[in-house]
């Protein structure tokens, strides 16, 4: 088992083995997070730039914390403080960051494909922290990591992704990871948000919530993204909630041991009942915690680390 990639751009391009390497590495880092001293020196002396050109709270905080746990120096740049507001191109911004001797760049950008573009023009590793409606690989990795912690192997498991699939990079990354891991994935939502072309990615598409949720072991809710919908894809939030919102009745259709996931931020009362979000089947906050470990793994591996160096356990403290 060895890690050879410099960039983490998509889960589409990762092999099952590579996904498992990240999961294993994340598992080792997660143990460290439970200690009183939560820091390892793995990336000491390295500078990581978090270039977040689109609003983000949790992903940015998780990358920030992950880099600090690895002892890297971190600089975060957001859209408001970057020169892109002065008309600087992404190319120039990124080349300037590289010229400042950054060792790695983590990018969140509204344009699909922009991390791939940066990886072509920069010599340093590029980590995709979400590009448009394309992919959000670390989210897909932390979601599958969380599912594996709860369910064990995902092979043959019935997993439902519910909501705004069309605009969701989280859905795409999860689809790629879950299909590689052998899960049985169904996408559900109104047809305007779940176009039939998704079946090309090896998943089922359903517009019938009841049959989709029946005996599912995971239901992943996606946030209804008002800001991305240029024209209305459904008539009202009220109708969306009445047709596709997860409530207690609908949750009862799930497998009794099913878990409820959400990448956040949650629109309470829209895609999910507040009570369910805080309920015992919800793993929403575990996802957040695991997000740090998974991002530590991503940063560590793309910086040249190897899984076996952390799997031994205590060598790093």
């Amino acid at each position: 088992m060895s890690w050879t990639r410099k960039h983490l751009l998509t889960l589409e391009e990762l092999s099952l083995d590579e996904i498992e390497q990240i999961h294993l590495t994340a598992g080792a880092f997660k143990k460290i997070l439970g200690r009183s001293v939560k820091k390892v020196p793995a990336l000491r002396g390295k500078t990581i730039v978090n270039l977040f050109l689109e609003p983000s709270t949790r992903t940015r905080m998780a990358f920030d914390m992950a880099a600090k746990r690895l002892s890297a120096d971190v600089i975060s740049v957001d859209a408001a403080s970057s020169s892109t507001t002065k008309g600087e191109t992404l190319r120039d911004t990124a080349q300037n960051i590289e010229a400042l001797n950054a060792d790695m760049i983590v990018i969140r950008h509204a344009a699909s494909g922009s991390p791939l573009y940066l990886s072509r023009i920069l010599d340093i590793p590029v980590i995709n922290a979400g590009d448009g409606a394309h992919e959000h690989p670390t989210q897909g990795l932390l979601d599958t990591f969380t599912m594996k912690e709860r369910l064990g192997s995902l092979k043959g498991r019935k997993i439902v992704i519910l909501g705004d699939i069309l605009f969701s990079r989280v859905a795409r990354s999860n689809i790629h990871a879950l299909t590689k891991m052998g899960a049985d994935v169904t996408l559900v939502g109104p047809a305007t948000l779940v176009p039939h072309w998704f079946t090309d990615l090896g998943v089922k598409v359903s517009y019938d919530l009841r049959s989709a949720l029946a005996d599912a072991e995971v239901v992943m809710l996606l946030r209804i993204q008002h800001e991305r919908q240029t024209s209305s894809h459904f008539p009202s939030l009220g109708e969306y909630t009445s047709m596709f919102g997860l409530n207690k009745t609908r949750a009862s259709w799930l497998n009794p041991s099913a878990i409820i996931m959400h990448p956040g931020p949650i629109n309470r009362g829209v895609e999910i009942d507040s009570e369910l979000a805080d309920g015992e089947r919800s793993v929403i906050l575990e996802q957040v915690t695991n997000g740090i470990a998974v991002r530590m793994a991503a940063l560590y591996l793309c910086a040249g680390g190897q899984p076996e160096h952390v799997l031994g356990g205590d060598t790093q403290d």
């Binding site: 699909s112 494909g113 394309h134 990079r169 795409r172 072309w197 998704f198 090309d200 990615l201 240029t230």
Partner: peptide, 17 residues
């Protein structure tokens, strides 16, 4: 075609465009 970057179909769906 508001905001369109490419042909609508399986590839645009995959690429998130």
């Amino acid at each position: 075609t508001d905001g369109a970057q490419m042909h609508e179909g399986a590839i645009s769906t995959k690429l998130g465009l």
